[in-house]
Write a protein that binds this DNA or RNA. Structure first.
Lengths: 236, 236
DNA sequence: CGCTGTGAATGTATTCACAGCG
DNA sequence: CGCTGTGAATACATTCACAGCG
């Protein structure tokens, strides 16, 4: 939640690679996390529209499918450039690529999976990641029974070799699915090894230097939020 | 994200169960999702403080541990009552119970796990839920190879028997971990069976009647958000 | 005093409404 | 015309700052 401090974005050097500097593709100000999340949703929606053979989509239609409203769609997109055509709408395939570029998923991120337990195994076999630009290139665990086994062509390495494995596999992102008690330790080692971003599933607040991005997923918090809204409703 | 429409809360019938109507425990206005998420974090923090033998905590200390600021802590809590003592702070154990009550986790929610695949199995064995008031009481899947097996004492039942299983197990909440293609179908059946809340891991926008709460967890969106902030940083 | 509880002030996000282009 | 792009208006969330109680 309180991932806002990381949201600096600093009006990144924007002179345009060429002379014209026409479409920006990088926002001039700070972009909120809300906007970024919606961009993800637009991207997935556009993939479906593309699959259905649609060429063009209006903000109204995209909003409907993505679960928001037309003004929000136009505003979100306008932070990054003028992608639409007045009178008709947005070109589906083009907009999708532009959003992928904005999100930074126009290239593959190499991912190290840290923790080969139940959840790690589930995430590993969740092939949707790969389709979206995240490729698991190495797996680390401390359990000697797991180390040395091979998952779909990828060796599970000992966490002791963290530094070596991260560097040789070229991983930039870590998906952290260790027990809470060892999570901070693992983070320290991953940071030393040069990891640039961490998706954390352990239910602890992690400390990391500001050049390393951390994002948390906490399923218990989601369930508790659901509980609150259910309780809420029952009392009306 | 756009789970806001469900956030009505309607100044719930607040006359006080008894005459005095002293501490509210239910807010008079709408409570934002942000506040609810922070309450979860406070709750987890308080559990740790309690475990460490702390009796009382100030908003400053709680804020530090929970990753926010003192004014936010006081404001969040003040929506629901006056739980603190001026000059000293908040009583740890008492505040924890009150927050649990606010979140609706002062009693056990019975959960049906829908989908016995990899992720389902990971969530099943994630014992943290149980500690936080969510007990898996039944498991459904369509795969004949899984149906009829027993997980730690709980039978995996055929999804065909959804209605019967949900009712006989008394499940009120569903954790949905089916493939995206069948998720909406499953939701329809679950709603018919009387489910009141759904935690959805399938990457699709689900339709459900307004008396059924739906909350989404989409790991791809989290990774894409991480990608955005990493890209962002590299360009500075 | 110290720390809570809370109106008032500020900062952000969303929505409106319309000018302007294809 | 229809739909985008965007300043201006509104709604919402956070932070300030201080009165008031233990």
């Amino acid at each position: 939640m309180k991932n806002r401090p990381s949201q600096k974005s600093k009006a990144a050097a924007r002179k345009g690679r060429d002379g014209r500097s026409s479409t920006k593709e990088v926002a001039d100000g700070k972009i909120s996390d809300y906007t970024v999340r919606r961009l993800s949703v637009y991207c997935h929606t556009l993939e479906e529209l593309e699959h259905d053979g649609m060429d063009v989509v209006s903000s109204a239609r995209l909003a409907k499918l993505a679960g928001t409203n037309p003004a929000q769609v136009r505003k979100d997109l306008s932070y990054f450039g003028n992608f639409g055509k007045r009178g008709s709408g947005y070109p589906v395939t083009d907009l999708k690529s532009r959003i992928r570029k904005i999100l930074g998923i126009d290239h593959v991120w190499r991912v190290v999976l840290v923790g080969a337990g139940n959840l790690g195994s589930a995430l590993f076999s969740y092939k949707d990641f790969e389709r979206h630009g995240f490729q698991i290139v190495s797996i680390l665990d401390t359990d000697p029974k797991k180390v040395g086994t091979k998952w779909d062509g990828i060796w599970v390495s000992s966490f002791d070799k963290c530094n070596k494995v991260v560097k040789s596999s070229g991983a930039e992102v870590a998906v952290l699915v260790t027990p809470a008690a060892v999570a901070q330790d693992a983070v320290n080692r991953l940071v030393d090894a040069g990891i640039k971003g961490i998706l954390n599933f352990a239910p602890v607040k992690l400390e990391a230097p500001s050049h390393v991005q951390v994002r948390n997923v906490n399923i218990t918090i989601e369930l508790e939020g659901l509980s609150f809204s259910m309780k809420d409703l029952q009392e009306e």
